[in-house]
Amino acid sequence: MLRLTDATYTDMVAHALDELPNEACGLLAAVPGTAKVERLYRCRNAAVSSRRYEVDSRDMLNADRDAEDRGLQIVAVYHSHTHTDAYPSPTDVKQAPDPTWRYVLVSLKDAEPVVRSYRITDGAITEEPVELDRR
């Protein structure tokens, strides 16, 4: 299960909308060993594309360092799908580097944004619930 605060959820969806027509991407950090997200890092999409994303390498380094300084760890990456469902694409699966990470999709295909979270292990996709934590 991935636990997000209302504020994180709202920020993630807002980021997806801000980046239109391109895909947005960012990283989520939690206390190590948990999936309770404490921090969201908006990252630049180095691919600047409506069909692909690539987390800017400098943003990746800065997020990782900041998370570590706060006793947190990057546990998830999110990105938006502007015209398709909130489900990992074949490219997402092929490039998923870490089976311990969550891959969060924000779909803007319909009027109401849809957020879903997945684990990707050796090419196998497993969805897990996203719980909103009203803090």
Partner: peptide, 10 residues
């Protein structure tokens, strides 16, 4: 030297 995942997709 730091090594981090290169995170990308579609």
């Amino acid at each position: 030297i730091s090594i981090l995942p290169a995170v990308a997709g579609g």
